[in-house]
Design a protein around this nucleic acid. Structure first.
Lengths: 135, 135
DNA sequence: TATTTTTACTTGCATTTTACAAGTGTAAAG
DNA sequence: CTTTACACTTGTAAAATGCAAGTAAAAATA
């Protein structure tokens, strides 16, 4: 588990203290796309996170109120993770990451299609997806 | 030095492969604010990066064309670092980080003042600062 | 000119974090 | 009743980080 010790009062530094590693924002990404994920869903992502790291990151994100755990409606054996409002509010940041990456890397077609929508009306896109994720 | 091995084709993942650690974006932050920094300038930042980590990060950012080294006009003993266009283009992302942090943390007054300007005209703010950094 | 200081790193090593493999406990399915 | 699914935990080697000290070239100072 990474400690959440604050390095400075800078907002950038404080933010990185929470999600400034190679995995946390991928978890957030999965949840922004899927709205709800189980532990197993995260493991299925292309990057191949290991189980112990996933558990540690989920705990840290939960402790920092970025995500929350919910009981799965179908089974007690499953757990649902979803974003809190604080986590949903990372959407603008996530969009800018994608836009930057689109400019400097080659990215998958489906993501390009999404960004086309974003560029048409960024504010509208954010509002619509936020609403969907909150419901 | 961290390896730059690509974990997937996801733009978020590719981005994190480059600057997804606790220090890289702080270096970018310093350069977005100051336009140019020496090695010693980075060491002065409040977070207290150690010299070996700083050297490793500067090298990785340079290899990924986020920053570039320039000879210092006053002295051969000094080195100037500045952002490339690719690095300057991280400004929208940096702004969203600050906006998110402002909502969920208490942040310094001077940063609040900056964000007030951002909120008045985000596009204008980005264009103006980009122009300044490019010159 | 000789010496000291500044600047940008490098090196060594202890501590922490990560990655990989395997295992555990509970719930659900057959 | 046994097997499978699911969400983790544990152990350990590899890698990254943090800290202190050291180095080499250039600049400032005596």
């Amino acid at each position: 588990m990474p400690k959440a010790k604050k390095r400075s009062d800078c907002p950038v530094s404080c933010s990185l203290d929470i999600w400034g590693d190679k995995w946390s924002l991928l978890i957030v990404r999965d949840l922004l796309f899927a709205k709800e994920c189980t532990y197993g869903d995260f493991l299925k992502s292309a990057e191949g996170i290991s189980t112990n790291i996933l558990a540690a990151r989920l705990l840290a994100l939960e402790e920092n109120r970025i995500i929350e755990k919910l009981p799965h409606p179908d089974s007690k054996a499953k757990v649902l993770y979803r974003l809190t409002r604080k986590g949903i509010d990372l959407l603008p940041l996530m969009i800018e990451i994608n836009l930057w990456a689109e400019k400097y890397f080659s990215i998958p077609e489906d993501r390009k299609a999404m960004l086309k929508e974003v560029k048409k009306d960024k504010t509208g896109f954010i509002k619509a997806l936020t609403k969907k994720l909150e419901s």
